[in-house]
Simulated scan of single mutants.
Amino acid sequence: MSNTDSFIEEVTEEVRRDKLFALMRKWGWLAGLIIFGLVGGAAYNEWSKARAQAQAQAFGDAVLAGLAGDANPTLLEELPTADANQELVKTLLLASTGAVDGADRAETAAALQALAETDGLPPLYRQLALLKAQMSGGTGDGARDTRILEELATPGTPFRPLAIEQQALRQLEAGNASGAITLLQQLLEEPGATDTLRRRALQVIVALGGNPTPA
Protein backbone atom coordinates (compact mmCIF):
# COMPACT_ATOMS: atom_id res chain seq x y z
CA MET A 1 0.00 0.00 0.00
CA SER A 2 1.41 3.43 -1.00
CA ASN A 3 1.85 6.27 1.41
CA THR A 4 -0.91 8.13 -0.43
CA ASP A 5 -3.40 5.30 0.08
CA SER A 6 -2.45 5.04 3.74
CA PHE A 7 -2.88 8.78 4.20
CA ILE A 8 -6.30 8.69 2.53
CA GLU A 9 -7.45 5.86 4.81
CA GLU A 10 -6.29 7.71 7.90
CA VAL A 11 -8.10 10.85 6.81
CA THR A 12 -11.24 8.83 6.03
CA GLU A 13 -11.13 7.14 9.44
CA GLU A 14 -10.63 10.50 11.14
CA VAL A 15 -13.63 11.93 9.30
CA ARG A 16 -15.72 8.96 10.41
CA ARG A 17 -14.71 9.49 14.03
CA ASP A 18 -15.49 13.20 13.79
CA LYS A 19 -18.94 12.41 12.36
CA LEU A 20 -19.57 9.83 15.11
CA PHE A 21 -18.54 12.27 17.84
CA ALA A 22 -20.74 14.94 16.28
CA LEU A 23 -23.72 12.56 16.27
CA MET A 24 -23.04 11.61 19.87
CA ARG A 25 -22.88 15.26 20.91
CA LYS A 26 -26.12 15.94 19.06
CA TRP A 27 -28.14 12.87 20.02
CA GLY A 28 -26.32 11.44 23.03
CA TRP A 29 -28.88 12.96 25.43
CA LEU A 30 -31.64 11.07 23.62
CA ALA A 31 -29.83 7.75 23.95
CA GLY A 32 -29.26 8.45 27.64
CA LEU A 33 -32.92 9.32 28.07
CA ILE A 34 -33.99 6.07 26.39
CA ILE A 35 -31.65 4.02 28.60
CA PHE A 36 -32.89 5.84 31.70
CA GLY A 37 -36.49 5.19 30.66
CA LEU A 38 -35.85 1.49 30.11
CA VAL A 39 -34.06 1.07 33.44
CA GLY A 40 -36.62 3.18 35.31
CA GLY A 41 -39.53 1.35 33.69
CA ALA A 42 -38.09 -2.02 34.65
CA ALA A 43 -37.54 -0.85 38.23
CA TYR A 44 -41.08 0.53 38.48
CA ASN A 45 -42.49 -2.69 37.06
CA GLU A 46 -40.68 -4.75 39.70
CA TRP A 47 -41.80 -2.37 42.45
CA SER A 48 -45.41 -2.57 41.23
CA LYS A 49 -45.28 -6.37 41.21
CA ALA A 50 -43.85 -6.47 44.74
CA ARG A 51 -46.47 -3.98 45.98
CA ALA A 52 -49.33 -5.91 44.37
CA GLN A 53 -48.03 -9.15 45.86
CA ALA A 54 -47.81 -7.60 49.32
CA GLN A 55 -51.34 -6.22 49.03
CA ALA A 56 -52.67 -9.56 47.84
CA GLN A 57 -50.93 -11.31 50.75
CA ALA A 58 -52.38 -8.84 53.25
CA PHE A 59 -55.83 -9.23 51.76
CA GLY A 60 -55.57 -13.03 51.79
CA ASP A 61 -54.50 -12.99 55.43
CA ALA A 62 -57.48 -10.79 56.28
CA VAL A 63 -59.85 -13.17 54.48
CA LEU A 64 -58.46 -16.15 56.38
CA ALA A 65 -58.77 -14.27 59.66
CA GLY A 66 -62.33 -13.36 58.79
CA LEU A 67 -63.23 -16.96 58.04
CA ALA A 68 -61.67 -18.01 61.33
CA GLY A 69 -63.81 -15.44 63.12
CA ASP A 70 -60.98 -13.37 64.59
CA ALA A 71 -60.77 -10.54 62.07
CA ASN A 72 -60.12 -7.04 63.43
CA PRO A 73 -62.90 -4.71 62.13
CA THR A 74 -60.67 -1.62 62.31
CA LEU A 75 -57.93 -3.28 60.26
CA LEU A 76 -60.50 -4.57 57.78
CA GLU A 77 -61.91 -1.08 57.25
CA GLU A 78 -58.42 0.21 56.45
CA LEU A 79 -57.50 -2.73 54.23
CA PRO A 80 -56.80 -1.56 50.63
CA THR A 81 -58.57 -3.39 47.81
CA ALA A 82 -57.26 -3.85 44.27
CA ASP A 83 -60.52 -4.53 42.42
CA ALA A 84 -64.29 -4.86 42.72
CA ASN A 85 -64.07 -8.51 43.80
CA GLN A 86 -61.78 -7.69 46.72
CA GLU A 87 -64.07 -4.81 47.69
CA LEU A 88 -66.99 -7.23 47.74
CA VAL A 89 -65.12 -9.70 49.94
CA LYS A 90 -64.15 -6.84 52.26
CA THR A 91 -67.83 -5.88 52.56
CA LEU A 92 -68.64 -9.50 53.36
CA LEU A 93 -66.04 -9.69 56.09
CA LEU A 94 -67.03 -6.36 57.60
CA ALA A 95 -70.67 -7.41 57.69
CA SER A 96 -69.80 -10.76 59.24
CA THR A 97 -67.81 -9.11 62.05
CA GLY A 98 -70.71 -6.79 62.88
CA ALA A 99 -68.57 -3.79 61.96
CA VAL A 100 -71.23 -2.23 59.75
CA ASP A 101 -73.27 0.27 61.77
CA GLY A 102 -72.62 -1.72 64.96
CA ALA A 103 -74.96 -4.45 63.77
CA ASP A 104 -75.93 -7.24 66.14
CA ARG A 105 -75.89 -10.90 65.09
CA ALA A 106 -79.44 -10.93 63.73
CA GLU A 107 -78.85 -7.79 61.67
CA THR A 108 -75.50 -9.14 60.49
CA ALA A 109 -77.08 -12.42 59.35
CA ALA A 110 -79.86 -10.54 57.56
CA ALA A 111 -77.37 -8.24 55.81
CA LEU A 112 -75.27 -11.19 54.66
CA GLN A 113 -78.32 -13.13 53.51
CA ALA A 114 -79.48 -10.11 51.50
CA LEU A 115 -76.01 -9.76 49.99
CA ALA A 116 -76.08 -13.44 48.97
CA GLU A 117 -79.30 -12.79 47.08
CA THR A 118 -77.83 -9.90 45.07
CA ASP A 119 -78.32 -10.37 41.33
CA GLY A 120 -75.13 -11.18 39.44
CA LEU A 121 -73.11 -12.04 42.54
CA PRO A 122 -70.37 -14.56 41.64
CA PRO A 123 -71.15 -18.06 43.02
CA LEU A 124 -68.08 -18.12 45.27
CA TYR A 125 -69.05 -14.89 47.01
CA ARG A 126 -72.69 -15.93 47.22
CA GLN A 127 -71.68 -19.11 49.04
CA LEU A 128 -69.34 -17.16 51.31
CA ALA A 129 -72.14 -14.73 52.21
CA LEU A 130 -74.52 -17.62 52.90
CA LEU A 131 -71.97 -19.36 55.10
CA LYS A 132 -71.20 -16.24 57.12
CA ALA A 133 -74.95 -15.60 57.49
CA GLN A 134 -75.36 -19.11 58.90
CA MET A 135 -72.39 -18.60 61.22
CA SER A 136 -74.11 -15.41 62.46
CA GLY A 137 -77.32 -17.25 63.37
CA GLY A 138 -79.02 -17.97 60.07
CA THR A 139 -82.33 -16.75 58.71
CA GLY A 140 -84.44 -17.76 61.68
CA ASP A 141 -86.28 -20.30 59.53
CA GLY A 142 -85.03 -23.76 60.51
CA ALA A 143 -86.13 -25.49 57.31
CA ARG A 144 -84.58 -22.78 55.15
CA ASP A 145 -81.32 -22.86 57.10
CA THR A 146 -81.19 -26.64 56.71
CA ARG A 147 -81.54 -26.32 52.93
CA ILE A 148 -78.85 -23.63 52.79
CA LEU A 149 -76.39 -25.72 54.81
CA GLU A 150 -77.13 -28.78 52.67
CA GLU A 151 -76.30 -26.71 49.59
CA LEU A 152 -73.08 -25.41 51.14
CA ALA A 153 -72.07 -28.93 52.26
CA THR A 154 -72.51 -30.42 48.77
CA PRO A 155 -69.34 -32.33 47.73
CA GLY A 156 -67.06 -30.14 45.68
CA THR A 157 -68.24 -26.81 47.10
CA PRO A 158 -65.48 -24.53 48.46
CA PHE A 159 -66.80 -24.18 52.02
CA ARG A 160 -68.03 -27.74 52.55
CA PRO A 161 -65.98 -28.45 55.75
CA LEU A 162 -67.20 -25.28 57.47
CA ALA A 163 -70.78 -26.02 56.39
CA ILE A 164 -70.55 -29.52 57.88
CA GLU A 165 -69.36 -28.00 61.15
CA GLN A 166 -72.38 -25.68 61.13
CA GLN A 167 -74.67 -28.65 60.47
CA ALA A 168 -73.18 -30.40 63.49
CA LEU A 169 -73.75 -27.33 65.65
CA ARG A 170 -77.38 -27.17 64.54
CA GLN A 171 -77.79 -30.81 65.53
CA LEU A 172 -76.39 -29.98 68.96
CA GLU A 173 -78.79 -27.05 69.32
CA ALA A 174 -81.62 -29.44 68.49
CA GLY A 175 -80.44 -31.86 71.20
CA ASN A 176 -79.27 -34.50 68.72
CA ALA A 177 -75.82 -35.35 70.09
CA SER A 178 -75.45 -38.56 68.07
CA GLY A 179 -76.26 -36.70 64.85
CA ALA A 180 -73.68 -34.06 65.72
CA ILE A 181 -71.03 -36.72 66.41
CA THR A 182 -71.75 -38.39 63.07
CA LEU A 183 -71.27 -35.13 61.21
CA LEU A 184 -68.13 -34.23 63.16
CA GLN A 185 -66.69 -37.68 62.44
CA GLN A 186 -67.41 -37.03 58.78
CA LEU A 187 -65.58 -33.73 59.13
CA LEU A 188 -62.49 -35.51 60.47
CA GLU A 189 -62.40 -37.51 57.25
CA GLU A 190 -63.02 -34.52 54.97
CA PRO A 191 -59.97 -33.86 52.71
CA GLY A 192 -60.52 -30.10 52.67
CA ALA A 193 -60.75 -29.68 56.45
CA THR A 194 -57.97 -27.67 58.07
CA ASP A 195 -56.03 -28.87 61.10
CA THR A 196 -57.79 -26.24 63.23
CA LEU A 197 -61.19 -27.46 62.09
CA ARG A 198 -60.27 -31.08 62.80
CA ARG A 199 -59.06 -30.17 66.30
CA ARG A 200 -62.35 -28.45 67.05
CA ALA A 201 -64.27 -31.46 65.79
CA LEU A 202 -62.19 -33.83 67.94
CA GLN A 203 -62.71 -31.71 71.04
CA VAL A 204 -66.48 -31.61 70.59
CA ILE A 205 -66.68 -35.36 69.88
CA VAL A 206 -64.75 -36.10 73.06
CA ALA A 207 -66.85 -33.62 75.05
CA LEU A 208 -69.99 -35.39 73.82
CA GLY A 209 -68.64 -38.77 74.94
CA GLY A 210 -67.93 -39.99 71.43
CA ASN A 211 -65.03 -42.09 70.22
CA PRO A 212 -63.19 -40.09 67.54
CA THR A 213 -61.40 -42.01 64.79
CA PRO A 214 -59.32 -39.43 62.93
CA ALA A 215 -58.58 -40.12 59.28
Rank of each mutant, 00 (worst) to 15 (best):
G98K: 09
A109W: 09
M24H: 12
A71S: 10
L20I: 12
V63F: 05
A82G: 11
A114T: 07
G28Q: 11
E78I: 02
G69C: 09
N72M: 01
V39T: 11
W29L: 12
L115N: 00
N85T: 15
A52K: 08
W47Q: 13
Q86W: 04
Q53N: 15
V39Q: 05
L76K: 02
T108G: 03
L33N: 04
D104S: 04
G66H: 02
A52T: 11
R105S: 15
E78F: 03
E87R: 08
D70R: 11
G32E: 04
P73V: 12
A116T: 09
L75A: 15
L93G: 07
Q86N: 05
K26H: 09
A71M: 02
K26C: 04
P80C: 10
S48G: 00
L76P: 01
L88Q: 10
Q55W: 03
L92Q: 07
E77S: 10
K26M: 06
K90Y: 12
I35H: 01
G32V: 05
E46T: 12
G41C: 01
L115M: 08
Q53S: 15
G98A: 12
N72I: 01
N45A: 13
A62W: 06
A62Y: 06
L64I: 12
A99C: 03
A84D: 15
L23I: 04
N72Q: 05
W29Y: 14
E78Y: 02
L94C: 07
A110W: 00
T91E: 15
A43F: 14
G41W: 02
E117F: 03
A103E: 05
S96W: 04
A42H: 03
A110C: 06
